[in-house]
Design a protein around this nucleic acid. Structure first.
Length: 819
RNA sequence: GCGAGAGUGGCGGAAUUGGCAGACGCGCUAGAUUUAGGAUCUAGUGUCCCUAGGAUGUGGGGGUUCGAGUCCCCCCUCUCGCACCA
């Protein structure tokens, strides 16, 4: 063994050994105690591996290694979410084909990933842009299509002019493109959707069965936003047609004083009378131009125009004017709202501005009195001005009673609404999986048969970046024959959202090279769901929602025996740089490679784990990294010393402290490591090392307890193994143990060894510690108190006072209260 | 605007159920060792008065309690999420 710790030599040596011996290869069939530990795979966008990736992958690998040592058959795969815009944009700029740049990127990233020294099973690598993978992404599309869960529809959709493509609702954040920050506009386009809305209720129900951060579940719940209410049908005046609205407050139906349609509502044009036509058209055009973010802003003053038409309130036959206003959204409910200004603040503001009637139909209390309303009264109360319903408590009795009444009369019914909208998966871009559909002149829309997959992405296309699907520029691709009638047909030229690729990749990992099916049923049923999933919280209502949806759909089709893909989820926090998120565009990305070179992977990953709470992340600073390197060197020297000046005695007295510390460290580091509290877990190891140093410094090697120190030394290396795997292997070998430390058992602590015969108690007088008292562990309280009263330091504080209360907090304090 | 979380030494951060605040590390100070630097080892390190000792201290103010970083009320700051969802 070398006197000096040389990380470069050690790390390359063990990485090679692990690879040569396939230490981390899991026998997927035989494994009995499976544990599927997955980190979100990497999106090779061109900026290589950064601190954030390391922060995601290093600690998770430490956790996985810990689980392996606890006896689990741990499966930890890695792959590339390789389709996507960055590669294509690069192609437009530099003229390099995305296939080529992606491949180069992956080569480089794979190299970087290996430097982490994780337990990835490289035989199971996935690349979503490879035909052997996207063939099955297309297969997923077909499964959904065959069940009516994938459909094509013309709709107002989100358009990012910079990315030159449409976006799903989930990919619009604050009215901006989630990827590039460009303001999102609305366009009417014929697009493909996945019917995730069919699963709204199931997605909510599943939350009860998964161990996820509460916050993430909360975010998904809010995103889905279930609301229970009723539909009410209003007849139009002098017309046969009707307008239906959704309301959560059918109890306020008598308070309707006007009706509002979204500017995009199909009836707007028809209902507008000539006198108002110009104003309405201008208003609608204006709304269409308004940026999504402004349209949704609550700060904006509400505006609207009158159509000139009226509808009739079914419950009281009142004539209700119909307005158009952009505070009503076409995309929620029916795109029409019954306005009750007395009991809805938005309607109140609108009515006040345009001089519309405000009528109170819910009173504050049982007096059933009307009052002067200065704002809408939105709380529960008692129904008034509502015919036979007057006096009913609005929520408990009123709402159900009115719904029953509407149903009986055929004017409406109970209704549950969700904010969640269908997942728009079409993208007008090249670098993605082609949508496996053709359009035939005779047969119309025809799906490609499963056996004809994959629909290969053509090599030769023109990259415009202008919003015309590049696939359309290759006539050999576009012009094809209809699989049904063999007549001429045109291929769909849009590709799929890359989130489709990542919504099923966890099913592919156990069997990534399967040629005739997306996954092996038996293997997937055995290995899934994923036991531990780790990734960023920013995916709460994108990837994490989509993956749950697809899993549930596959479950319903009988392809899986589970319907929640990720049993337990942990989010790593964000590492910032001077408070700002690291990003290529800001130019503040910290490159991990330099640190790995200087200090080694072990030091670097361990330092990141030690910085603070894993789930909170924090600001990057390399100020303490030398400390971690120092610690590993300290461990190295300790082992070196044990080998060069081996302990030869059987001293036990002083060694007790070491033994106790070992059991203490094992106990608490295990608890902390289990719950991803890496920082405190590492602290416990440091304490053990400090205690061992203090022993070896104070006791000569001839007296040092040979047997026990050997055991402690071995346990120390084991405890260190998940955190600094390379160093641990090296030390394990140096200690004369056989390869590999990762095939050994996790150390166990003995609760009895944590106890000492004598314990130290603080003695408190009126809440202040005044003395320390050493007593026998089993001493009874009365003895302890009388001993405490005898202490000089305590007597001083008792002079001339009376003890009103005294008791012992077990193992901790003696409490004295005096007056 | 609504909701959630956070605020602890010079710094990163610890503190089951209310029970000896500041574990662990960085930095700093002193000493040892070394030709020197670095490295290493030892001791110290919240603040104030400094002598044993005492006072004070977890964003600010109030409260409950023998005892509060932890529980309750008000306020300030920061972060995150949601934001006309009828």
């Amino acid at each position: 063994m070398n006197e000096e710790y040389n990380h470069e030599h050690i790390e390359s040596r063990w990485q090679k050994t692990w690879q040569d011996t396939e230490l981390y290869k899991v026998d997927m069939q035989k494994a009995e105690n499976k544990l599927y530990c997955l980190v979100m795979f990497i999106y090779p966008s061109g900026d290589k591996l950064h601190i954030g990736h390391w922060y995601n992958y290093g600690p998770t690998d430490s956790w996985a290694r810990f689980k392996r040592m606890q006896g689990y058959d741990v499966f930890e795969p890695m792959g590339y979410d390789a389709f996507g815009l960055p590669a294509e944009n690069y192609a437009i700029q530099k003229g390099v084909h995305p296939g080529k740049s992606t491949e180069d990127n992956i080569q480089y990233i794979r190299h970087q990933l290996k430097a982490i020294g994780a337990m990835y099973d490289w035989n199971k690598e996935i690349n979503t842009s490879a035909p052997e993978y996207y063939r099955w992404t297309q297969w997923m599309f077909l499964q959904l299509y065959n069940k009516g869960l994938a459909y094509r529809r013309k709709a107002p959709v989100n358009w990012c002019s910079s990315c030159a493509t449409v976006l799903a609702n989930e990919q619009v954040v604050d009215g901006e493109c989630e990827r590039c920050g460009t303001d999102v506009m609305t366009k009417d386009l014929e697009q493909w959707f996945f019917k995730i809305t069919d699963y709204a209720e199931r997605l909510l129900e599943g939350h009860d069965r998964i161990d996820w951060p509460e916050k993430t579940i909360h975010m998904q719940k809010n995103w889905i936003n279930k609301s229970v209410g009723a539909t009410v049908i209003f007849n139009l005046q002098n017309r046969d047609e009707t307008i239906s609205v959704f309301t959560t407050r059918p109890d306020t139906l008598w308070g309707v004083t006007y009706m509002v349609l979204a500017p995009e509502h199909p009836l707007v044009e028809e209902l507008t009378i000539d006198e108002h036509r110009q104003a309405v058209q201008e208003y609608a055009a204006q709304a269409r131009r308004t940026k999504e973010i402004d349209r949704l802003s609550t700060e904006r003053e509400k505006t609207g125009v009158f159509t000139g038409s009226y509808c009739i309130n079914p419950v009281n036959n009142e004539i209700v004017p119909i307005w158009v206003a952009d505070y009503v959204l076409m995309t929620y409910g029916t795109g029409a709202v019954m306005a009750v200004p007395g009991h809805d603040q938005r309607d109140f503001e609108f009515a006040t501005k345009y001089g519309l009637q405000i009528r109170q139909v819910i009173s504050r209390d049982e007096s059933l009195q009307e009052e002067e309303l200065e704002e809408a009264y939105e709380d529960p109360g008692y129904m008034i001005n509502s015919d036979q319903f007057n006096g009913l408590p609005s929520h408990e009795k009123g709402i159900p009673a009115v719904i029953d009444y509407l149903k009986e009369k055929g004017w409406g019914d109970k209704k549950v609404n969700y904010r969640l909208r269908d997942w728009l998966i079409s993208r007008q871009r090249y670098w993605g999986a082609p949508i496996p559909v053709v359009f035939c002149e005779k047969c119309g829309e025809v799906a490609i048969p499963e056996e004809d997959l994959p629909v290969l992405l053509p090599e030769k296309v023109e990259f415009t970046g202008k919003g015309k699907s590049p696939l359309g520029t290759n006539p050999d691709f576009v012009n094809t024959t209809c699989p049904k009638c063999q007549g001429p047909a045109r291929r769909e030229v849009d590709t799929m959202d890359t989130f489709v690729c990542s919504s099923w990749y966890f099913l592919r990992f156990p069997n990534p090279h399967l040629g005739d099916k997306p996954f092996d049923r038996e293997l997937v049923d055995k290995w899934l769901p994923v036991d531990q999933y780790v990734g960023g919280a920013e995916h709460a209502h994108m990837h994490l929602l989509y993956a749950r949806f697809l899993t549930k759909a596959l479950y319903d089709m009988g392809h899986l025996n589970f319907d929640e893909p990720f049993t337990r989820l942990v989010h790593q926090g964000t590492i910032t740089n001077s408070g700002a998120k690291m990003s290529k565009s800001r130019g503040n990305v910290v490159n991990p490679d330099a640190y790995v070179q200087t200090y080694g992977s072990d030091t670097f990953r361990m330092y990141m784990m030690f910085m603070g709470s894993y789930e909170e992340g924090g600001d990057w600073s390399d100020e303490g990294i030398v400390g971690m390197n120092r610690f590993l060197k300290r461990v190295w020297r300790l082992v070196y010393q044990m080998l060069t000046e081996p302990p030869q005695g059987n001293e036990t007295d002083k060694f007790n402290a070491v033994v106790r510390q070992m059991h203490y460290s094992i106990k608490y580091m295990t608890i902390d490591l289990e719950r991803f509290h890496f920082n405190t877990s590492i602290s416990r190891i440091m304490e053990l090392v400090n205690e061992m140093y203090s022993y070896t410094q104070n006791v000569g090697s001839s007296e040092q307890n040979k047997k026990l120190l050997t055991v402690v030394g071995q346990n120390l290396v084991k405890m260190l193994a998940p955190f600094s795997p390379h160093l641990a292997e090296e030390l394990w070998e140096a200690l004369g143990q056989s390869y590999s430390v990762f095939n050994t058992d996790w150390p166990q602590h003995d609760e009895a060894m944590l106890m000492t015969d004598q314990i130290n108690l603080g003695v408190q007088v009126n809440g202040k510690i005044r003395a320390q008292l050493e007593v026998d562990r089993n001493a009874d309280d009365r003895d302890i108190i009388s001993q405490a009263l005898e202490l000089d330091k305590i007597k001083k504080h008792l002079e001339g006072k009376k003890i009103v209360k005294s008791f012992v907090v077990p193992q901790k304090l003696v409490i004295l209260v005096v007056k």
